[in-house]
Computed example of a mutant assay.
Amino acid sequence: MRHNHKIAKYLYLKRAGLGELSLPSRPSPDGLMASETNSPTTYPARTPHTAVDTAQDYWEEPNFGLALRVPADKQAKTARGHTFFNGNGVYHESELEHRVSSVLQTLFELRELQSQYPKVHYIDADGVQREHTFDYFIVLNDGTRVAVAVKYARKRVEMLDLLDRICAAGITGVGPLGKLTPRVADAVALMTNEEATQEAFENAYFILTSRLHHDDAECDSLVDVVKRLPGQFRFGDLLRDVPTRDKRRTAIWRLIDLRLIAPVYSGRIDDRSWLRACA
């Protein structure tokens, strides 16, 4: 479902459960968001994500990492902006790029995410040397580096041809003054609207929100609940008879993020979705 009006999209997300996501707790003395309890976390730790320091009274210039170009802030026909991953600003120049960026940020093994990087060279069909700047660059926990191109599925064939040519040239990066560096990535990938669907984007939104706004004690309690449930269960089943539905809902998304529970079927996750505990 597409929402061309911001208010319509807000109301849609609110109906989907945005209104029941818990708010961040008060900041601790060190400036990081702290949970209301100091209960120890009993589930696997993820790569730490930098929280906003609400205690500071000064503005700090965002760090956009390896980005080789700065997209214009506004453009009449596209949605532009940026998000943050592990303290690093990540540009997007369209609605599709925003969806791809959000989906990438939910990858379990993701360690680093850069935008507008790397710039590589290739030889086109006429034998002319060209350059191409990838939309995203990811590094996984095992060190694997992947350059990610973003295009709509209708351009898949021509983009795959371009990626083949880039690979044939050794994924060779173009640095300052035209300096060439081979193997600036271990692989290349294409993500389209068929991978970064609206449903995947909405799931990613709630997962990313839960990283900052979850309550550790509620997550611990939910882990115990899930252990007692046999087989499959619905998302909504986990919301029954709880004192604070907002904290429980956020905890569910956090456990999905941690791969402690998983959807049985693909698509958008809502209160009727079937979930299962992960082994």
Rank of each mutant, 00 (worst) to 15 (best):
L18Y: 09
T37W: 10
V146A: 03
A34V: 03
R15I: 11
D135M: 01
H82F: 12
I261C: 07
M1P: 14
F64Y: 10
A262M: 14
A76H: 15
F64R: 09
T250W: 05
A277H: 04
L160E: 15
Y152K: 15
L275R: 03
K6S: 08
T42Y: 11
G87P: 08
A185V: 08
Q198A: 14
D215N: 14
V242G: 07
R15V: 11
V90P: 01
R165F: 07
S39G: 04
R276Y: 13
D57F: 00
V52C: 02
W253T: 04
M1D: 13
T83Q: 01
E109N: 15
L140F: 08
V157W: 01
W253N: 08
T197E: 09
I138A: 06
V264D: 14
D57S: 08
G236N: 12
V148E: 06
R272F: 11
N38W: 05
Q198Y: 15
L113S: 00
R2W: 11
T37E: 05
V120C: 13
P40M: 01
T144N: 01
P182N: 07
E218D: 10
P62Q: 00
A168P: 07
F134H: 09
R276S: 15
R80P: 06
A8E: 15
E199K: 10
Y43C: 06
R111C: 02
I138G: 07
G81P: 01
S22Y: 13
Y91L: 00
E202L: 06
P118F: 11
G127K: 09
R211Y: 06
D237K: 05
Y122N: 04
G173F: 11
T244W: 12
R228I: 00
Y136V: 03
R26F: 09
I171W: 07
F206P: 07
Y136R: 11
A200P: 05
T197Q: 11
H121Q: 14
T244C: 15
I256G: 04
Q56Y: 00
E60Y: 03
S115G: 04
G19H: 11
K74D: 04
L32G: 00
A51D: 10
C219M: 12
F85Y: 14
V120S: 10
Y122K: 08
V150M: 06
R111D: 10
F84D: 00
E97W: 09
S39C: 07
